[in-house]
Design a protein around this nucleic acid. Sequence first.
RNA 1: GGCGCCAUAGCCAAGUGGCUAAGGCAGGAGCCUGCAAAGCUCUGAUCCCCGGUUCGAAUCCGGGUGGCGCCUCCA
Length: 467
Amino acid sequence: MNLFLFDSVKKEKIEFIPINEGEATIYVCGPTVYDDAHLGHARSALSFDMLKRTLKALGLKVTLAKNFTDIDDKIINKLQSSGKTLEELTQYYINRYLEDMEALGVERADIEPKATESIEAIESMVEKLLQSGYAYKIDNGDIYFDTSKDSKYGSISHMVTDDEQNVSRVEPNEQKRNPKDFALWKACKEEDICFDSKAGKGRPGWHIECSAMIAKHFKGSKDYCIDIHCGGADLLFPHHENEAAQTRCALNKEIAKYWMHNGFVQIDGEKMSKSLGNSFFLKDALKVYDGELLRYYLISVHYRNDFNFNEEDLQSAKKRLDKLYRLKKRLYGGKTGAANKEFKEALLKAMADDLNSSKAMAIVDEMITSANEKLDKEPKNKALKQEILGNIAFVNELLGIGKKDAIEWFQQGVSEEEKTKIEELIVKRSEAKKLKDFATADAIRDELKQMGIAIMDMPDGTKWEKL
RNA sequence: GGCGCCAUAGCCAAGUGGCUAAGGCAGGAGCCUGCAAAGCUCUGAUCCCCGGUUCGAAUCCGGGUGGCGCCUCCA
């Protein structure tokens, strides 16, 4: 089975043919670490986590790099009020980011480069561009990339180059040769954080980091540095256009063979962003909702579409995910066998079709229904039970869903004391039921309901769930 | 001003030229149950509007209407 993906530069769905057979190299543009991660970061991380899982399930050896931009204007601004060192501040947010991503079940990247640890690679690329005439230095020491020197500039985002009609909102800089030229290196100003380099004291521009880090960590081929370059849709221009230009001019090859961009998370129909003041931090969502539930909800929409986040849909996602855990609970303690071959193929095929997670989830739902139906008919079929658990294990492998303990899943937020009380009430109710004292039994059920507990009488006893 | 994305049942959401338009939530009917819950079965849309291409379109093209985004830091 082969992977088909939508290349956001070619704008069509094409077959993924890796540079090196059996291997896939991926670079995901990671966060600038000056604040906590929000739902948008989660969407991006989850999209390409699914990409990685799918490629692995297809049998490829995957190397995924995700960078941390740990030096830029916003970080420096934050630093001034914090009294911390750059390292302290950025490491704090890197750890926070990793914690949040772990809660969402995002696998750690194989390579996690930081801009500040890649200064040499950046310096060498800037130097190369300067020497070959693709870059120029202005009076204050800043170094700019000359976009007019790259004949392919614009080929990534299809944005017109410096058209008079294309009114840019970028503040004009007298010394820039073309409006779209961008800074490769920002010269040191007073009280700035600076790095020494051949080009003078200063710090790297945002775009050069990724190009340099990719060049540093991936060998690639003579045509491409890596297989797939990923990021949010907002990075297509100018970030990825600029990355591509730098790499093309410095290394004489394209930075990536394929490009993938994930859609936005919107709140009430608008892009979530700092400037709009409608950011939704993951840490706040994680206080209220389980990380796996957030994952499930966020991947229920195809990664390229915009995602409109709201609580009602999240609740409906919860009910849907609960069904998977009820099935798992039904098979509690059983052995996990091999997954059903047809199911496995169908699920993988959905994901191999440009990560169609919506379709994959529909296939999971159908598996759940079919499994419950079969279990109703043959409650003691061990082979069946093992296969279903195998199916659930494969769902977890591919989608990162369903790995938690099924009993605990329904007891989230219930203290040990409460659990003891619930168990006691259930015993009392069972006794009342035996005596056909249904009034008492129902009263106990109401009492449990008051506590937020739902009960269900199963063939092997009464089970309960936190509502 | 330039470039681009989207519009499918009450809600969420797949499907991008051809069997009866996936799946979920909500709703309705039934089975099961002491009654419930859970589970299972049945039940709903001709795809924003207009025009065109085609034997055939939700799917392609043109024109509307509405929503969103990039062109400034942004996932």
